[in-house]
Design a protein around this nucleic acid. Sequence first.
DNA 1: ACTAATTTTCTAACCGTTTAGATTTCTTAA
DNA 2: TTAAGAAATCTAAACGGTTAGAAAATTAGT
Lengths: 332, 332
Amino acid sequence: MATIRDVAKLAGVSVATVSAVINKDSGVRVSEKLTKRVEEAIKELNYKPNRIARSLSKNENYTIGYIVPSITNFFFPQLARAIEDIAFEKDYGVYLCNTDGRKERARYYLDSLVENRVAGIITTLTWEIEEIDFVEHVLEQNIPVVGLAGARSNESIDTVRPDDIEGARLAVEYLLGKGYGRIAFIGVKDSQTTVIRQNGYRQALLEAGLEYDEGLVGLTSGFDNSEIFTIVESIIHNYPDLRTIFVFNDLMGTAVIDALYRLGKRIPGDIAVMGFDDSVASYTFPRMTTMSIPKVEMASIAMERLFKRMNGDNSSPLDIQITPTLVEGNTT
Amino acid sequence: MATIRDVAKLAGVSVATVSAVINKDSGVRVSEKLTKRVEEAIKELNYKPNRIARSLSKNENYTIGYIVPSITNFFFPQLARAIEDIAFEKDYGVYLCNTDGRKERARYYLDSLVENRVAGIITTLTWEIEEIDFVEHVLEQNIPVVGLAGARSNESIDTVRPDDIEGARLAVEYLLGKGYGRIAFIGVKDSQTTVIRQNGYRQALLEAGLEYDEGLVGLTSGFDNSEIFTIVESIIHNYPDLRTIFVFNDLMGTAVIDALYRLGKRIPGDIAVMGFDDSVASYTFPRMTTMSIPKVEMASIAMERLFKRMNGDNSSPLDIQITPTLVEGNTT
DNA sequence: ACTAATTTTCTAACCGTTTAGATTTCTTAA
DNA sequence: TTAAGAAATCTAAACGGTTAGAAAATTAGT
């Protein structure tokens, strides 16, 4: 593969001149004549500058890391896309990292991103990220991090996230307003997001003067359909008059709906289901009622913060919370 | 940030020794004593090797590029995840690139991936990729490319894709078997995938001795819901007795179902809907009938091919086609 | 025509690794 | 003891860019 020296030789010019031609806007002026000669040599040799060498030399890497639990959770592709759109505009590339909820994988990416000297990292703050002190380790290497969609489990970085407490409260208020009475809550055990939304659910119940009943809360160890089925079944068995299930996110909401159908329930006739995050709600029939999270907006705020940090801003970390809005479907 | 020289100095050792300690399995033996001293220095300085420098020196980059039209199309996250899982196991990182169906963006990533000297590229062969002669340009730089899920529009690379013709034929046969008679087809105008599946649809009709009626084919310019509504409406208007719509993929299938509901149709009572690719079908209620594409399997074959090529294999390019299987839901 | 000032171009060092090949140190056997 | 061979360690030159600062070429002023 041709190098800058090959180009210089062919054009009968020094490497500095070639470099100046490549980086037109660097301030160094090159005469018409040489510019043309260099450009011809570049074409002739099909020369492509080596960004790795460039990165090493300038000590800057036009790449940011994006860490998610799993891109297959439909909530994340939309964030990923929004992030990539902005990165693209600023000439940055995006490294995609799925932790899969596993510590060792989070640790792998911690090392990988640091060793690759990425310019910045956007991550969802999940338990596996916290457990390995991801943020501390990365900040120590002077790589800025911004938390996007998840808990604010770390005070030392900017976080941009939905106001889950308020969102859950709005959801519960809406459901109570519909007169459904008892509301069950279903989520994932080790999920920060579940914890927060569960809190909102609890608060809303207490504020409404209702009791918070542990028996109405079902937590699964993951997104496994058969486990979800079992939990739904047992809650329904214990509370035969249950009319509503509030699920911590849309993806699991679809599994709950599936379970209910298999149990012979009609929705919303027998039981209403409400999701959260609006990731798949608009693709289900009947459309699932959910709380919509403005993903593009959140991603762009997160990226804006990240670039600010990358440019040296070290004002005190912000926690930006965006209130989700109700999208009424036909499952409630 | 500490460098290998800092470590060497602190440990009272040469950089070569430090390098040997870092790359334990390089064959160079280092004594117990020095190994310990070096490791302590590494810890002391919180040293992380700079992979960029390493890449430059060894002229190899542990990164592969993954190009998709848009990761928000639910078909792709599952592929992306499978690809990343394999890359992770082999210590490779994944660069995510969305072309968004735009030539200039495809061109940007062409340059970016080449300039970053990625080890290999997996891409869906879409029209914008073809139009800019992506494959030719990349191969010219000795970077292997494998086509995953899309057309085989290029004979010079391995492609791994669903057998769309056969899949569409199976779908149509199934629908005909159900006795629905006339079947409409809906897809996207500039989509290679649409073209192929449409061909399968056509062939199946002709084989069954039915006529292929252009009026039953609706092509949109994108995934815009209102445009899809208009097309569905007009087809239904022109063919009042239409009983079935075959949609080129699941995502659009959900939009078609939405349109039908808005037109007051019952599914499958009035009209049956069949999707393709099984990306969202399992999240819809009623579950949409679709043709399932084994995404994990395809991704792993594609990665296997890619790594073979990266290791210098240049046997003649394969076209691996995997037959989709019917997943019967409740929309037919 | 000659300098000085300005512009263009070049030389060489550097970024942080890897790695031949040289050098030093350690073993072993006579 | 010592010489030869093996093992451990080191030196210095890459890798392919960028970029100060030096050198050369051009322009301007008298």
